[in-house]
Design a protein around this nucleic acid. Structure first.
Lengths: 392, 392
DNA sequence: CTTAGTTTGTCTATCCAATAAACTAAGTTT
DNA sequence: AAACTTAGTTTATTGGATAGACAAACTAAG
C-alpha cells in the first residue's frame, strides 16, 4: 500500500491544474485575473503560465481592455493543440467524431453495421474491422498539432469492466471482448471503453442539456434502459467498476420475468422493446412508424406512449428518491417521443417523488440527440488527456 | 470561487495525515516502518512524528524486536488524548456513549423518552433537555486529556440537511428543528447531526459487521426503512446533502399508497410497521411478542416473517443492482429476526440480483445491534476531530 | 504635455518542506 | 573483537511558493 506522498512536484501539479482549469473555464483572461481568482501569487501564475505556453496548451492572444493601467495580455486555451476521437458503437450502426480539445467537432462519420447472423466471434471481427476503419478515417482528418490524437473513447451497448473489456452485450450477443486491448494494440493510443449510457451522460453533462450541472442522471431509453450517473461532476461507477444497471430495478415486485433473473424490471415496462411489444397487435413494428402515427394523432398509439411515459416516471421517481440529483436527462431513441411523453412523465414524477427532492430536480431531454454517446466518448478521451497533463 | 491552492503547508498536511493514518492502522510500529510503507524519507517521518508527539496524539512505547540491528522505537496512537460523544436519539429512547479516539467505550447511558402527547414544540423542548442531560452526564465521565471532548455526534430518525437541521421526523412529529445550532450554542463543541441510518452505516462499517469493507449499504429496518450508503469508505450523501431515502423506493408500481405521495414504497412491505399490520389480526401488537412466538415455532408467525424476508430481499436486490456494493448490512430492530428472515432473504436476493454483482456481494447482519447508530455517531465526531487535526 | 496614479507582469531574495547522504547509536552474527 | 544490520538524527541541497520591489504600459487630471 504505497500512498502517493506529498512533495513539491505535487504542489506544482495542483497549481498547474488550477491555472489550466481557470483558463479553460474563463478564457480569454489575463495572468492577473488568474492570480486574483485562484489566490495564487502573481509570480507563481506567471511561471506556470509560461510552462503551459511552452507546452503549447496556452497562448497569448493580444492585449485586452485597460481599466486605468497597463493593458493585460490575454491568454487563451489552444484547443487545436490536440484532437480526440469519440465512437458510438451501436447494435446496428457505428458513429464516430473527431473533436478538438474543447469538443468542437472537426469531422464526423456514420455507417450502418449489419452483422446479420454473424454472431459471436465472426460478428466481433467484422465489427472491429469496421470500427478501426472508422477511426483511421477520422485520424486522417486531424490537422497537424502539438499533441496529435490524444485518445480514443468508445461507448458500447453493454457491461464493461474497469479494464475496458466488454463483458456482456446482450443485443450484440457478445461476451468478454477485450476491446480496449484490441484498440490500444492497434493504435498505440490511450483508449477508454465505457457503457453507452455513461458516455451519453458525460456528453449531455458537458455539451448538452446538463451543461454545468453537477449531479445529473442520464436515462438512456433505447431497446433497453441504461443509466449514467454523474455525481459531483464526475462519473460514478459502482464498487467494482460498473453500476447503474437501473434498467433492472424492479418496479413490479411480482411482474413479468426478465432474462436477468429478476421480475418486473423497469425496462420491461418503459423501454422501446416494451413499447414495440404492446404495439405489435396494432400492426406496428418499429419506433419510427409509431412516432409518425402519434404525430397524426392516432388515439390508441398516443395511449401507448402515455403508458410508457407513466412507467418512465415511476422509475425516475425512484431514481430521484435515491440519488436526489439536480437534473434527470432522458436520452437515446425514446427521447424523440418527447411531445407524447413529457406531460404524463412530469406528472408521474411530481406525484411520486418525495417533495423535498422535487424542489430542485429538473426534468430534461437530451439536446445532442443521437450524438450524446459519441460526444461523451470524445469528452472521455479529452479528460484522460488533461488528467495526464496534470499528472506531469 | 477560491480554490484551495497548493503550498508547502498543504504538503505537510498531506504527509502528516499519511503518517497519522499509518500509525492509526498499524500501531504499534516504528518510524522506519512508516518510512518504508509510505515512501516518505526517514528524516521526514522523524520530523512529522515529533510534531505528532508534541501534539499528544502519538507516543513512544518502548523498543521492539531487532532483526539484526538497532532496536526500533515503537510508536502508538494515544487514544486517550480525547473523547467523543455519540448519541442515538430514537423515537422513544435516548442512548449515549462516551468513547475514546479509537472508539473504545468509556461510559454509556440509556434512558427512555416518553413524549406522550407532547407533540411539536413542547416535545422538542422536553427531548432536547433530556438529550442535554445525557450529554452532560457523559461529559463528567471523561478522564482528563489533551483535547478533552472533541465533538458530539447525534443520529436522529428523520431527514437532516447539511446545516444539521432536522427537517422532518415523521415519527417524532418534528419539523425544522435546528438541532446542531442548539447543541453547538449550549456546549461550544463541534456537533454533527445525521440520519440514524447513516450513523448506523458508519458504526457497522467501522466497528461492526462491515469492518474494513469499502462499499457497504446499511439497511436500517425499524418502524420504517432507512439506508446509509458508504461508498469508498466514506458516507455518500446526495446532491443537496441528503439521500438514501430508499425506504421509499417503489417496489410495487401500483401498490399501496404511501404518505410520501408515492405508491408501493418498499417500507410499506418490509418494515416493522408492515409486519405489525399483518400481525394485528393474529392478536400481536409488538415485535417482541412476535419474535417470541416465532421462537416457539408458530407457523402463521413464521409465514409472516418469511413474507417480510422476501420483500426485504426484493428491495435489497434492487439496491445491489444499483450500487453494486461489497456488502449489505441489515440492522436496527428487525435484525433480531435474523433466524427467521435470513434464508428466504438470501434466496430472494440471489434470484433477483444480477449475477455479475452477486459474485462479490456479502449479506450481513448488524453486529452492534441497537448500538450501531450510537457508535456511528461517536465515530462521526472522531472523524471530524481527525479532519481538523489534519487541516492544521 | 506633463504628472500622478493604476494595473500588469517580472525579478529577487527568502522561506519552508522534503530529500539524499553522511553520521551516530545500538543492536546481531560470526 | 570485527563485520554487518538496522534505527533514527543531522546537514546540506533542492525546488517550489511567496512577498515585495520593480519596470513597463496604460489612463486621467491639470
Amino acid at each position: 500500500m504505497t500512498t502517493p506522498t506529498g512533495d513539491q512536484a505535487l504542489i506544482k501539479r495542483i497549481n498547474t491544474a488550477i491555472v489550466l482549469e481557470s483558463i479553460l473555464r474563463n478564457a480569454p483572461l489575463s495572468r492577473a485575473q488568474i492570480s486574483e481568482q485562484s489566490g495564487l501569487n502573481k509570480a507563481t501564475v506567471s511561471s506556470l503560465v509560461q510552462d503551459l505556453i511552452d507546452g503549447s496548451l496556452v497562448r497569448e492572444i493580444g492585449t485586452g481592455q485597460s481599466s486605468g493601467g497597463r493593458k493585460p495580455v490575454m491568454l487563451d486555451f489552444v484547443s487545436s493543440s490536440g484532437y480526440a476521437i469519440g465512437i458510438d458503437l451501436g447494435v446496428n450502426y457505428i458513429r464516430g467524431v473527431l473533436a478538438d480539445l474543447r469538443g468542437n467537432v472537426v469531422a464526423e462519420r456514420t455507417s450502418s453495421l449489419r452483422l446479420g447472423d454473424a454472431g459471436g466471434e465472426a460478428g466481433v471481427s467484422i465489427a472491429v474491422d469496421q470500427l478501426c476503419g472508422c477511426i483511421e478515417s477520422l485520424m486522417t482528418e486531424a490537422p497537424a498539432s502539438a499533441y496529435g490524437i490524444v485518445g480514443i473513447g468508445v461507448g458500447v451497448p453493454g457491461l464493461v469492466d474497469d479494464g475496458g473489456t466488454l463483458l456482456l452485450a446482450p443485443n450484440l450477443k457478445w461476451r468478454d471482448v477485450p476491446l480496449q486491448r484490441i484498440l490500444t494494440d492497434k493504435f498505440s493510443l490511450p483508449v477508454t471503453i465505457d457503457n453507452e449510457a455513461n458516455m451519453g451522460a458525460l456528453g449531455e453533462q458537458k455539451y448538452g442539456a446538463g451543461r454545468s450541472i453537477g449531479n445529473i442522471i442520464y436515462v438512456s431509453v433505447g431497446i433497453g434502459i441504461g443509466t449514467g450517473l454523474i455525481l459531483n461532476k464526475s462519473l460514478y461507477k459502482g464498487a467494482s467498476g460498473f453500476s447503474g444497471e437501473m434498467g433492472h430495478l424492479s418496479v413490479e415486485a411480482h411482474g413479468k420475468s426478465c432474462t436477468c433473473g429478476n421480475r418486473g424490471c423497469w425496462e420491461m415496462y418503459a423501454s422501446e422493446q416494451a413499447l414495440l411489444e404492446q404495439a405489435s397487435p396494432l400492426g406496428f413494428d418499429d419506433l419510427e412508424s409509431l412516432l409518425a402515427a402519434a404525430g397524426e394523432g392516432r388515439a390508441d398509439v398516443l395511449e401507448l406512449f402515455a403508458g410508457i411515459g407513466e412507467y418512465l416516471g415511476i422509475g425516475i421517481a425512484n431514481i430521484v428518491n435515491v440519488f436526489n440529483p439536480d437534473a434527470v436527462v432522458i436520452g437515446n431513441r425514446m427521447s424523440q417521443a418527447r411531445p407524447w411523453l413529457e406531460d404524463v412523465l412530469r406528472r408521474t414524477v411530481v406525484q411520486r417523488a418525495l417533495g423535498f427532492h422535487l424542489r430542485k430536480v429538473q426534468l430534461l431531454f437530451a439536446e445532442l440527440g443521437e450524438r450524446s454517446t459519441m460526444m461523451g466518448a470524445a469528452e472521455m478521451a479529452i479528460e484522460g488527456f488533461f488528467a495526464r497533463v496534470k499528472a506531469t
